[in-house]
Amino acid sequence: MDLFQLEMKVNGEAVSVPVNPGLRLLDVLRDVLHLSGTKEGCGEGECGACSVIIDGELVDSCLVLAPQAHNREIITIEGISADGELDTLQSAFLEAGAVQCGYCTPGMILAAKVLLSKNPKPGRQDIARGIAGNLCRCTGYAKIIKAVELAAAGLQQKEGEAGV
């Protein structure tokens, strides 16, 4: 099979790799680029464990063929704690006890990230809707919603301090 030269930006870095065009973006991230923070839970768009951000939108990477990611900008869980510092959302998940087994966590955090980028002051219903595509079997969601509220408040405060 002819290989496809996949070019994309992943977590801010330009990537160019020859891949089997039948691979899913999920496989490219995990098996080719060794970014195993993106998980597979169902392989059919039900669970959201494989969520990544493509050009600012939350997408199930198990439903994206590698060539569809060509020339796109991808952010995975590894890309949001740049310079080793935890992102506000990551700290909020820890503080609120929103992480149990942690398997849904990368996708959940990215879902929350996209939500907050579009709606910095979400109500509980907005948060529930924002994470509706991400299943968590451990927490019962209450603490995840709490974590997103905490993060939203934290981000507001940061902006206030920065005088924005």
């Binding site: 993106t38 935890l86 700290s91 942690g102 955090i109």
Partner: peptide, 17 residues
């Protein structure tokens, strides 16, 4: 805070796969 928390929120925990 759970000891495995930071690795989990960073996506650094290694599960079986």
């Amino acid at each position: 805070l759970r000891v495995d928390g930071p690795a989990k929120v960073r996506g650094e925990s290694r599960y079986g796969a």
